[in-house]
């Protein structure tokens, strides 16, 4: 079973050379720590920065330089700052190629829910609806089950959705799943986790073809 850092590490293997990538709050943010050698990426944060660098050293934080998670950041050489409309032109206009974000639920047709639990949690969608409506490639990073132990991989979403038919891949602490037009296809299992365990933890049907390899981290 993977921890959050290992989920990020596995997702980092999906990064393609010379691309622009938007990382959501939580596990996705950790992906930036595992960029493979020889892969050049520019990270976009929807509050208005492209070319985002690592967190600043203690004492060097700038309140005027944050990411979409409101964390203090730095910029790299070649970075650029812009307003929110320009930022979402990059996203909606599909200039940002990959979006990695967290989710509360993913359903087998690629719907994602991550912004609202009616009557309980109302934080808002932020930029997630714009991101999932437009990015060519959307990868979800999340735990396979919620705190109650229920599957977050579903036949159909139970929560208000953020976007329809948009998720391409899901990386969890148990597995890598691809969203196909026939449903979830099991691609890889986490080290030490059996196909049976993944099936038991998953409410949706899984397409399982041949031997399922273990993730290589």
């Amino acid at each position: 079973m993977l921890n959050k850092n290992q989920i990020a590490q596995r997702i980092a293997q999906e990064l393609e050379h010379n691309t622009y990538v938007n990382l959501g709050i939580g596990i996705p943010t950790l992906v930036a720590n595992y960029i493979p050698q020889g892969i050049d990426i520019e990270f976009q944060s929807e509050n208005g920065v492209l070319g985002m660098g690592p967190f600043p050293f203690e004492g060097e934080e700038d309140p005027d330089l944050i990411n979409a998670g409101k964390q203090t950041i730095t910029t790299l050489d070649g970075a650029v700052l812009f307003d929110s409309a320009t930022s979402f032109a990059m996203i909606r206009g599909q200039h940002v190629q990959l979006t990695v974000l967290g989710a509360m639920e993913v359903s087998e047709n690629g719907d994602i829910a991550n912004w609202k639990i009616p009557g309980k949690m109302v934080k808002g969608m932020g930029g997630a609806m714009d991101l999932v409506a437009s990015a060519d490639n959307i990868i979800v990073a999340m735990m396979h089950t919620n705190r109650a132990g229920d599957s977050k991989i579903l036949k159909q979403s139970t929560l208000p959705i953020t976007g329809v038919n948009c998720v391409k891949k899901v990386v969890t602490n148990l597995a890598v799943l691809e969203v196909t037009n026939k449903g979830f296809k099991l691609l890889e299992r986490a080290p030490g986790v059996s196909v049976e365990e993944i099936k038991n933890a998953t409410a949706a049907d899984l397409i399982i073809e041949g031997e399922i390899p273990e993730m290589q981290l």
Binding site: F55, E58, E61, P63, I66, K70, Q71, T72
Partner: peptide
């Protein structure tokens, strides 16, 4: 600053 985040 809402989320002061630094690296060592």
């Amino acid at each position: 600053i809402e989320q002061k985040t630094t690296r060592s």
